[in-house]
Design a binder for these strands. Structure first.
Lengths: 236, 236
DNA sequence: CCCATAGTTTGCGATAGCGCAAAACGGGCC
DNA sequence: GGCCCGTTTTGCGCTATCGCAAACTATGGG
């Protein structure tokens, strides 16, 4: 059980207001682990034996239907928790988590949660805040899927990814982990073909520059406009 | 400030494990109010000055886009909380709540929440459970919108409503509050026209019986089959 | 009892986006 | 340096579903 440096996590909202010694007590229950690119962290349906905090890398959470279709629930960025199934009353993971890049995580055994919450009640409140904001995002996504067309949804998805995990370049923003057309399709409820067509279109207008699992927003502002444009307002 | 009878709420999961006197202490901070059918309880964007527990009736939570389109986030059944924006870190309500039937609610001022949580930490944990299960439902909804066609989504929506608020009849299940084609469209990401066509079709097959803001599932089992059927499996 | 209103049904194009298929491409591995 | 595999691109027909328009019908109020 490796010692974890508190300085790595002290600034996270999850631990806001914790004293150094409390933090240490919490971290003592965790171990850290490294997951190489494309390795599975846990599988949908498996017993939720642990919950996680991402330190480095990027993790994709995806949900699969009985018939094998997938959607991407979200991408986890460093500093975020994931796999907190048990905190919300689930005995099994509702989704599959995969490292999309070499990643480092902290792992707490599920059994530690009730103990920690009892000792540090504010953990429950902060977790409530994070879960609440994920609920918000889900509602936004439902709203978009109900009212917008595919191009706008893709625009929104890319902007969110850029905000969450964008690397600022001299001219533009690059999404900082490998992501395929298929992934974007699964985030926006469409097919990889349609995503490919949309990106090709944008590329020819100089809005983006993209290739194999790689996307750079060259003109974020114009993409914002695209994302917000009312379908039947301006001409093509 | 009317006295509220603890027996009305003691059995709710939210208050599981509370002693009678604790419960009384909590209820002392609440007042109750009655909202007539079709009246607004709070508006999207308004300051979240209170949170609510529905005692009788039914409440619709809906979200509106800047361009005026709406989706139904959920229907609230008796015993459920709603308007808990501030518990998840929001200063304004993210949706509009409307009583779809004459309704009675308990109302706590937002200011009471931090105090209550400090005094009764398990409130945060139970709220975490409810918010978590709503997150689950949202993900399910996103999955359905991404992978299923409209008819299946409508089937699922009606089955969920029937389970949550269905009144068992001699032969079938009636959804126990007024709900229009438009409402169902806004729950499933389609138009009232398409919903109407689908219900007409089902009606002629004897699966449902419906009219003005009224739906009875006459053959729930066949609807389950419809909901689960793989789009390109059986013949029409 | 009749009218006004909100909800529902239905017809008829129009079309965004899917689904299939095939080709081009790019990277990494041996 | 060449090959293999996963990813991306693109063409083309198809259809589920939308959007508009118009007729129809309960329901509650006066």
């Amino acid at each position: 059980m490796a010692k974890v440096d508190t300085s790595l996590v002290a600034h996270l909202p999850l631990f806001a207001g914790f004293k150094a010694e409390d933090l240490e007590e919490i971290l003592r229950e965790a171990r850290s682990a490294r997951y190489p690119k494309n390795s599975a962290i846990f599988e949908q349906g498996a017993d939720a034996h642990a919950f996680f905090l991402l330190l480095h890398g990027h993790v994709r959470a995806a949900k699969t239907t009985p018939t094998g279709e997938q959607i991407v629930v979200r991408y986890v960025a460093p500093g975020e928790t994931f796999g907190i199934a048990m905190a919300i009353g689930l005995a099994q993971y509702p989704a599959t988590a995969t490292a999309v890049d070499d990643s480092v995580v902290l792992i707490w055994p599920t059994a530690a949660w009730p103990r920690l919450v009892e000792r540090f009640p504010s953990l429950a409140s902060s977790t409530l805040l994070t879960v609440g904001s994920r609920l918000q995002e889900s509602h936004t996504r439902i709203l978009e899927m109900s009212t917008q067309q595919v191009e706008q949804r893709v625009a929104h998805a890319l902007l969110r990814l850029a905000k969450q995990s964008g690397k600022k370049l001299d001219h533009g923003i690059e999404i900082d982990f490998p992501i395929s057309r298929q992934d974007i399709a699964q985030m926006t409820g469409t097919t990889l073909h349609t995503v490919s067509r949309i990106l090709s279109g944008w590329e020819s207008q100089g809005l983006v520059e993209s290739g194999r699992q790689r996307i750079i927003l060259r003109d974020p502002h114009k993409i914002v406009i695209l994302a917000e444009r009312n379908p039947d307002s301006g001409p093509a």
